[in-house]
Nucleic acid binder design. Structure first.
Lengths: 246, 246
DNA sequence: ATGCCGCTCATTGTATACGCTTTCCGCTGC
DNA sequence: GCAGCGGAAAGCGTATACAATGAGCGGCAT
């Protein structure tokens, strides 16, 4: 019983502290999923970090069964990589994947802007501006982790406004992966620093100017992508012939 | 030992027929996943059909653990729905979901056409035409199940040519869901009957006319969507106030 | 001394056992 | 006769135990 536990450790409101019978099991899983997901997106778990099932099971106070379920979900979202007999590790995106993700964001997020401009309400705009403010505050406070997560949340919520749940979920996953890409290829202290892009974007949207918002989003994403330093590091499977025959 | 088994039941080449020790476990899982996925896409398992873990475990000769893993994967692709204490069933898409899926296909598949036109090779075209031919043959032979799967495969492979693995995977999932939507809202004997759309599309692509291919794809998808009979059946949670106050 | 082989440990993959929730059916009371 | 309640069964959720595999390491032979 002296094991360190998280998630339900703060509340511990399940009567007598019996660890096995906590209220709703599904919510528990969801919370743990969020914890791990956030840790990855906020770069507290860096790409390549191994995620051993035993360790996670002990930390969160559930059995490996539940952990495996969560890891598989994270794997489907490509936040972690499952190597057959080696277990799970935080995904290290390749340069190709990075390009694919940003191309996809260009297509989908830009394509969504007209519809978003048509549907956005005052509350939506307010909520978005709030996210943008908090993002800038976090950035100013030096909390890059929080800023990254807030930026992803901004883009995700934006997509939700379109009303298309399928595309919104896709965008959210692309944003999560983008966070990983930033962790590998991003230049520290250079990501969207202090830029008012998000505020400006909301401005164009509330004024109903979908075309302009679309163009602006395109430039915004291009700027982020351009700020990456894509050094094609071919760690795995280096071409030995190429290397030693030259 | 007298239980019916599938997948590996045909080969039974693992020495003496011991069911537990088949070659590679991962491949086995993949095969079972494909079996269930195909059955859903081909409408041999209809929307709403329950998928009991015990039954599937017995049929495929593995334990419930493996089945659960597969069901969760299918759930993430929204081919099956996992109801908390009720188990899995084939997803019955709502009208809203159907609209979202086709809107998403409009955006992504059409957006991909220019790049596909730029990259398509002779072998690609050949392979696509072959799929189109087989689809028409299946349709003529009355095997709608096969035709539906081939149509999804056509669109999926088309997307792959773009080179963007992320978007291609997304399109493939959208196509799988489209098969489900056809199962619920499609008019029998009316889906793409004998149309040469796919062949024509390949023609535009090999001639490098991305714009035209894009417009054609748009019309193609609109035609499919228009052929649906979206009867908004609100089975679950009927609004009693609405019904009895009117 | 060095290289190869085999051993042991660490870690994942799979199955099974148990508990809990839900549902269905039969019983009893009104 | 019908409605409500209780028990039994079926099926899912979770944990744990066991098996298999790969990696790291030390000993032995050359």
């Amino acid at each position: 019983m002296n094991q360190r536990q998280l998630v339900a450790g703060g509340k511990s409101s399940d009567g007598g502290g019996r660890p096995g019978k906590n209220g709703d099991g599904a919510e528990r899983h969801e919370t743990i999923y969020q914890s791990i997901s956030d840790a990855i997106i906020e770069h507290r778990l860096k790409p390549g970090a191994r995620l051993r099932e035993d360790a996670l099971a002990e930390v969160f106070g559930i059995s490996r069964t539940g952990i495996r379920k969560i890891l598989q979900r994270l794997a489907m979202e490509q936040l972690v990589t499952l190597t057959p007999r080696r277990g799970a590790s935080v995904t290290r995106p390749t340069a190709d994947e990075a390009k694919d993700v940003f191309d996809a964001r260009q297509m989908v997020e830009c394509g969504l802007m007209p519809e978003v401009a048509r549907r956005i309400t005052a509350e939506d705009a307010q909520s978005l501006r709030e996210l943008a403010v908090r993002e800038r505050e976090a950035l100013r406070a030096g909390e890059q982790s929080v800023a990254i997560k807030l930026s992803a949340a901004f883009h995700g919520r934006l997509a939700r406004i379109s009303g298309n749940a399928t595309l919104a979920a896709f965008v959210e996953r692309l944003c999560s992966r983008s966070s990983l890409i930033l962790a590998v290829y991003g230049n520290a202290g250079h990501l969207g620093c202090e830029s008012h892009d998000h505020d400006d974007l909301v401005g164009y949207l509330v004024s109903g100017n979908g075309e302009r918002a679309q163009a602006f989003m395109s430039r915004h994403l291009k700027a982020i992508e351009a700020s990456l330093s894509i050094h094609v590091e071919e760690d795995e499977a280096p071409d030995l012939f190429e290397i030693f025959s030259g």
